[in-house]
């Protein structure tokens, strides 16, 4: 079970990071969202995995750890706020710059378009 959980987190991280490294804004947003799933799951697991345990007092003697849950709950909401902000930033960027490349300009146009300050080598 633990192995399965950990590898799920690992797959989410890998996919998230790969998408974050893409060159267009939309995949990056998707990657960030995926990455935040992974982070939330990871944080949540610091309370250890507890199947079928009580979450509310008075119903059992064994409880799941409430602290990571409280932390992750706010993290989910804030994660949403950040995703929203990045998405709107991407839209604004596309409108103002005319493309949706993460660097604000498509590499082909960069070389003859700019002085050496903006030389992009990756």
């Amino acid at each position: 079970m633990e192995l399965l959980y950990a590898s799920s987190v690992g797959v989410l991280v890998s996919c998230g990071v790969f998408l974050i490294l893409r060159s267009r804004t939309f995949p990056v947003v998707l990657g960030l969202t995926m990455f935040s799933y992974a982070v939330n799951l990871f944080l949540f697991s610091s309370g250890r995995l507890s199947l079928n345990q009580a979450a509310v007092l008075g119903t059992s003697t064994e409880y799941a750890d409430p602290l990571p849950q409280a932390l992750v709950l706010t993290a989910i909401v804030i994660g949403f706020a950040m995703t929203a902000f990045v998405v709107i930033l991407a839209i604004r960027g596309r409108t103002d710059l005319g493309n949706d490349h993460v660097d604000g300009q498509v590499p082909d146009t960069k070389n003859h378009n700019n002085d050496n300050n903006n030389k992009v080598k990756v």
Binding site: E2, L3, Y5, A6, S7, V9, G10, V11, L12, V13, S14, C15, G16, V17, F18, L21, A38, F42, S45, S46, G47, R48, L49, D65, P66, L67
Partner: peptide
């Protein structure tokens, strides 16, 4: 890079959840 990070995070996660918990909860 992404595979490496995935493996590292998964390992840390596994190492974490297979150890007994001492919580302030």
């Amino acid at each position: 890079i992404s595979a490496g990070l995935g493996i590292v995070i998964a390992s840390i996660c596994y190492a974490l959840i297979t150890r007994p918990l001492e919580s302030i909860s």
